[in-house]
Design a protein around this nucleic acid. Structure first.
Lengths: 115, 115
DNA sequence: TTGACATTCAAGTAAAAAGTTGAATAATGG
DNA sequence: CCATTATTCAACTTTTTACTTGAATGTCAA
């Protein structure tokens, strides 16, 4: 199962869901415990969990009559890498720009070296 | 200007916008150049840029009669940190669990130490 | 100045997402 | 077995988002 980073971002792009992820980072929880954090119906929370699950961010497994919700590391890792790659690329451009500017400066100093 | 990570995630949670960010990581571009990447109207692309701009992810500045779009590092950095924090917390729990399991194992070995 | 170009503004439509309520399912404790 | 608890399924409403088209704005080049 490969999860698209865009789906991960979309899943985290809702305050209820990012709060759920934040909460689950500390420890697993039941659906009821998560629902208690919000002023919306527990059915709505269950639906949010469905979104998170489809994005691979959480898994649910029955435990007696409750269901334990667990945060999964993989999509977090994948999207982390996606962001790091873009950030690094951006930073490299800045340093290349520095290089270019430094070169321009030195060219100005030695005036008309090539043309 | 502080940008909420949730807004950054929401902005990146659309394939058009994540593709734009991906493209801009390599180099700045004009709105028209970005629009050329998609099969939608350039007005729609302009609207997507508005979303990205409101999330702080890009800036636009006039340059002659075109407009240069630039990727901004800050929100990328902030959301990167958000994810790292949650991931680290999750990993710490795993290692704590290992510790607990190791302790349980040793308790089983020394049988009935406390009760 | 005027005409062409690049882009945004504005208004409307269609599709997707988030929320609600009520019924169904599944496990537990008496 | 039955009532209770936890959660999901299903249908429906409301809100938000993505997209479209057409008009407005601002800059350049002749």
């Amino acid at each position: 199962m490969a999860f698209a980073v865009t789906d991960t971002f979309a899943a985290l792009g809702d305050p209820v869901r990012s709060t759920i992820v934040d909460r689950l980072a500390g420890s697993d929880a039941t659906v009821g415990e998560l629902a208690a954090l919000f002023a919306i119906s527990f059915q709505a929370v269950s639906q949010h969990l469905g979104v998170l699950e489809r994005a691979g961010l959480v898994s649910r497994h029955r435990e007696g009559r409750t269901r334990r919700v667990r945060l999964e590391a993989q999509p977090l890792d994948d999207s982390l890498r996606w962001m790091e790659t873009r950030k690094r690329q951006l930073e490299e451009r800045y340093s290349r720009l520095d290089t270019v500017l430094a070169r321009v400066a030195s060219m100005t100093a030695t005036t008309e070296e090539h043309a």
